[in-house]
């Protein structure tokens, strides 16, 4: 079976799903690591120390990207419900959304990854 070649709407929805699942996975992990305090502070501290590892720092940038994309795309869809006429401009609105995404991601990525590069 071949792939359905949907347009921007299909891609934006696909990323919405992926980022939603990404945030959900982090939320489950976070509940789990917070729960470790029940077993004792040494377990909790050991797990929390992992978050300082460069791999986790980069993953945190991914988490921020997931939350940001999911929020912006969610707002875009809510706007269609409030002003149905905007549906006609959904492609242009997606471009604006991605521009906002990029503008937010650049400084945040720099600030979040600065400790990894020892600055």
């Amino acid at each position: 079976m071949s792939r359905y070649r949907g347009g921007i709407g299909q891609w934006s929805w696909m990323f919405h799903r992926i980022t939603g699942v990404g945030v959900l996975v982090f939320l489950c992990l976070h509940i789990l690591d917070t729960f470790l305090i029940v077993l004792g502070p040494e377990h909790y501290n050991a797990i929390i120390a992992w978050y300082r590892h460069p791999v986790f720092r980069v993953s945190e940038v991914g988490l921020f990207a997931c939350v940001l994309y999911h929020s912006l795309n969610g707002v875009r869809i809510i706007l269609f419900e409030a002003w149905t006429g905007l549906v006609r401009w959904h492609r242009q609105m997606f471009y604006v959304q991605m521009a906002i995404f990029a503008v937010c991601m650049l400084p945040v990525t720099y600030l979040m990854l600065r400790p990894v590069f020892g600055r």
Binding site: G6, G7, I8, G9, Q10, W13, F80, V87, R88
Partner: peptide, 16 residues
Amino acid sequence: TIFNCTDACPRGINVT
């Protein structure tokens, strides 16, 4: 709100 329906409509109906 995936818009595939609007893109696919051969009559140009704004389905979404």
